[in-house]
Design a binder for these strands. Sequence first.
RNA 1: GGAGAAAUGGCAGAGUGGUCGAAUGCACUGGUCUUGAAAACCAGCGAGGGUAACACCUCCGGGGGUUCGAAUCCCUCUUUCUCCGCCA
Length: 422
Amino acid sequence: MLLISNIRENHEEIVQRMKLRNVDVEHVVEKILAVDKRKREVQKRYEDNQHAIHISSKEIGDLFKAGNKEEGNALREKAGSLKEDNKLLHEEVNRLDEELLELMYQIPNVPHESIAPGKDDSDNVEISKWGEKPNLSQNKEHWVLAREYGIIDWELGVKITGAGFPVYRGKGAKLQRALVQFFLDEAEDHGYEEINPPFLINEASGYGTGQLPDKDGQMYHTERDHLYLIPTAEVPITNIYRDTIIKEADFPLKNVAFSPCFRREAGSYGKDVRGLNRLHQFEKVEIVQIVHPNKSFEILEEMVTHVKGLLEKLGLHYRVVRLCGGDLGFASALTYDFEVWSAAQERWLEVSSVSNFASFQANRMKCRFKDSNGKTQLVHTLNGSAMALPRIMAAIIENYQTEEGIVIPECIQKYLKFDILN
RNA sequence: GGAGAAAUGGCAGAGUGGUCGAAUGCACUGGUCUUGAAAACCAGCGAGGGUAACACCUCCGGGGGUUCGAAUCCCUCUUUCUCCGCCA
């Protein structure tokens, strides 16, 4: 959520900047300004009345203490009617507040100045590229290979749960676990504290990071207990800092978490959901940083470097793209996507997304710090996948295939008792 | 799941209807003293809104109510603790 003061002061620029996202917020912004103005007027009246009530309450106290019942009772009656008026004003303030909040939730984050305009992922800007397409003697899709080696069973998942819940078994399960271990160790080497969070979250946490109210339909919801299954560890981890005031000296706060992720993915179809490309349940290692607002864009680059390192150690051909305005997430100010080359599918697969949310999440979460002048300011939050497992699995299976089996990349061999999967 | 107790500032802990945004201690910040540090002493020290700055408003787990006036009384929800039951 944007700061209301920011909208008051910079609404013209905000409306302009949002055009990069292909959204027109002019109408909503106008409404916000009108409701905000009205709210402030009513609130002023309410507060002045409150003040008058306070004063007479004190007087009444004094009068009764002095034994002056007559005047006390007269004043009491007068205060009573003031109170009646104020009840209405208070209701009006609350109503306007709610209306304002609802409008504020409709405004996405302001895109960073480096963001290119555009409609969808075809307008994303390639920033860098590493490695080469592998030169293979055979070229089978990962779902074919996975079946051949018996490491992933989709039908079994369908039987137990439904489509999109594959079962990993034997060396497949071990390979995935080795990758998780590798990602966690790498994060630790970069100074991230490991967290094992809850996998179900309450409504307040959903609002904190921006999944609610916008993406309600994307999360699994447990009806009886009103909890949501996490779509990413970003939610529980970032919400650790909800309603807190951080010491400036503690910056940057760095956490890493491994978790399953649950997504309903309503409306997906076709080649996008083939094999491991898109699942309802998958595993991911997520990195989160809570930082000083002056540092966030610099730290975003640092996180990008971290993720690049992972892919390079795994020897996977990849490219980095900067999302265009139309593809940028609701809460994000700037996002880089990492895409790995899938040899058999002959296309890029998104394996990581690293974003700076600036103060957007912090404002919703009331996560602040005291600056050197003793003033409280909103922090900036960032997160990134490092990495999402299924598509990395897919890329390794495809890009490292040989007639003898799937060769295990060197950097994860130490976590396994085999160096070829066959 | 059943019964009981509790929730106050960063922490500990007073406060049971009237000047309480809240005693006191610890922690923290600044100063005095000291060659330096510690100790001691002095001062400051919650958050949000509002203002040019004051004023002023709101907040004592959340929500609602009683009252001229609520941290204090009532209702409700949540959480924590203790006992019983169940259980990986």
